[in-house]
């Protein structure tokens, strides 16, 4: 029975999500004009739902202090209080308000993941474009370094580095960004390599254009669409990696509210049939699903436009 009830609620949730996605898309089409509206009209409902969720997360992260009923680290009651009207999702292992920590978690977890992705992208994309454009020994050296770094499994590598450098937030961001930038490098390089062989790049080189202009005016505009989609995918990957590390206890450290650590701290409840630890895990899942839905649509569009 338990299974059936769960399945029922899952079905209800999916139907609700689709309806929300449909409504959001309709609203977005009405509010925008021209090419954007045309693109949105053809978007699948899943993409509409994805955009809605991303927007909500951003709003919650930005206005966390206004929304949260209690402070992030404030002990407000007994440990593991059940759900009631004062503490909507009860309290955690130290007696802090779970809802408030979930809301602050949006700011911390998503913020850290975003900063990491941005850093990984800055490093990976710049080096990747440079390697593809300049070629020769620079490309060889960078590619070999990346090959080696990618030959070490990411999670293992980050565990190793975090053991050594400690687990402060800046270290975490640097370590994950470095590891992840190798993947961005690969993609940026291969995208740019496809562009570099085009006649218009040859024409620009023969015209005597410098490296800077080649990259910024000739290559980057044409590489932007796949890179933006990749940003979404990398964000998901980084977000999941950081959450996994936090869950293992080597990521974001207490008392900072973070979804991965929240699962770890309250995991014991699950065996008693309490779903509270699933909330932060679900919050992570929902955002990655949303981003993936949007990215999937963007990739589909990019490949469709090529033909």
């Amino acid at each position: 029975m338990n299974v059936l009830i769960t399945l029922f609620w899952i079905a209800v949730a999916i139907a609700g999500a689709m309806a929300a996605g449909w409504l959001f898309r309709a609203a977005a089409v009405a509010l925008t004009r021209g090419g954007t509206a045309r693109a949105l009209r053809t978007a699948p409902v899943t993409a509409g739902f994805g955009m809605l969720v991303i927007l909500l997360y951003v709003l919650v992260a930005l206005f966390a202090p206004l929304i949260a009923p209690y402070a992030e680290r404030e002990v407000v009651g007994a440990q593991f209080l059940p759900w009631d009207s004062t503490h909507v999702f009860g309290t955690d292992n130290l007696g802090r308000d779970t809802l408030s920590r979930l809301i602050y978690g949006a700011r911390n977890t998503v913020g850290i993941a975003f900063a990491t992705t941005a850093l990984a992208f800055a490093m990976g994309a710049i080096l990747g474009l440079l390697a593809a454009t300049v070629g020769g020994w620079l490309d060889q050296i960078l590619s070999r370094i990346v090959d080696i770094l990618m030959a070490i499994p990411a999670l293992i590598f980050s565990l190793l580095l975090l053991t050594i450098f400690g687990t402060s937030v800046p270290t975490l961001i640097l370590v994950i960004a470095t590891i992840d930038s190798t993947r961005v490098f690969r993609l940026a390089r291969s995208v740019a390599l496809n562009i570099v062989v085009m006649d218009y790049i040859e024409a620009a080189k023969l015209r005597g254009e410098g490296l800077w202009r080649l990259i910024t005016r000739e290559i980057l505009p044409n590489a932007l669409a796949p890179l933006v989609a990749e940003f979404g995918l990398r964000f998901c990957f980084v977000f999941l990696a950081i959450s996994a590390l936090s869950f293992l206890g080597v990521g974001v450290q207490p008392p900072t509210a973070d979804w991965g650590s929240m699962v770890r701290e309250n995991a014991a409840l699950i065996t008693f049939g309490d779903v509270t630890p699933l909330l932060p895990a679900g919050a992570i899942a929902l955002l990655t699903v949303a981003v993936n839905f949007v990215v999937d649509w963007m990739l589909h569009r990019a490949s469709g436009l090529k033909e």
Binding site: T46, S243, A244, T271, A281, A285, V289, V291, N292
Partner: peptide, 26 residues
């Protein structure tokens, strides 16, 4: 596709705890 995409997006511990919640609970 939608299921696969969701499943890729889930953190492993989420999947694991859901399975525990559904299958181990009973």
């Amino acid at each position: 596709n939608a299921l696969a995409l969701s499943s890729i997006s889930f953190p492993e511990f989420f999947v694991a705890y859901i399975l525990i919640f559904i299958l181990a609970q009973s």
